[in-house]
Design a protein around this nucleic acid. Structure first.
Lengths: 151, 151
DNA sequence: GTGCCACTTCAAGTATACTTGAAGTTAACA
DNA sequence: TGTTAACTTCAAGTATACTTGAAGTGGCAC
């Protein structure tokens, strides 16, 4: 079975070694055995858990929630209902978050088009655009930059 | 023209008044006039900017980047290129972020289905599921909970 | 006129998630 | 036999984004 040093895991996940030690300290990536020199030896199960940690963290879960999740998962008692509740709540909040980000993406896109058109209008001595015209507009995702974007 | 107290803006955006003062202090929501009693009077332009601040913050922009953006926007000098660069970079990073979140959403969904099936297997005295079976599976977004999810 | 509420400024404090530093150990290499 | 790199533990420090507290002002109801 594959085993990894802290440095290898650090590189694998682009996380500093200090962060991996921190995750162990706060109890979300635990039971890491040591070799004869006292160095951490990461195994496949730790890699799998770290993937889950990164996924959950990336999607906005706090350390406290991660601690709760893994305390349920590692407990001998039956916490399957708690796990399902936590995951279902996180899934729902994540779905909402993605929807909000998609709306925000459109806002950023509008701003970008607005300033690109300001630049164009200066180069061509045309009337500068007005933000009002962009406020409710959506733009196709063609990166060619050829389309005017205004009707 | 509509004017708002700090409390009204606070409620409008679900932000504590202290945060609005903080945004003024660090220079991202500035030029807020005071009435005869010295209280802040927010106008439409401040509401519009606050919407942009919330959008940018929500999509992961730091205060430092917001400061840069508005220092460009408010400057008399020609910073349109800088604004376009900043917005284009933010748009790209946001697109990547949304894609990553969609992948992470699938991971969360798999975990949820796995634990839901663990629960079902206990209720029906069936063999408990194995995580390996869920690792690469995708699930339709039907909330009915009727489908088994396993083939 | 006094109680109270919402506001003001300014300074200091806080939560989260790490990061850094000090001091020491181990193993490989010149 | 150094010495260099990579690791260890433990405590303290840091960045970001606010939040809280103290002390004071203004305007309105009773």
């Amino acid at each position: 079975m594959a085993e990894y040093t802290i440095k290898e895991v650090s590189e694998m996940f682009s996380l500093p070694a200090s962060t991996l030690r921190y995750y162990e300290e706060i109890g979300i990536l635990t039971n890491i055995p040591r070799n004869s020199s006292g160095n951490r030896v990461y195994q496949e199960c730790h890699i799998a858990r770290l993937r889950t940690i990164c996924c959950f963290k990336n999607t906005g879960m706090s350390m406290a929630q991660l601690q709760a999740f893994f305390s349920y998962e590692c407990s001998n008692e039956d916490h399957v209902e708690d796990i399902i509740r936590l995951l279902a709540e996180h899934k729902d909040s994540l779905a909402k978050k993605i929807e909000q980000l998609q709306r925000d993406y459109i806002h950023v896109q509008r701003k970008l088009h607005f300033y690109q058109d300001i630049k164009k209008s200066r180069e061509t001595q045309m009337q500068p655009p007005v933000w009002e015209d962009y406020k409710y507009q959506t733009f196709a995702e063609n990166e060619g930059d050829g389309a005017d974007g205004r009707s």
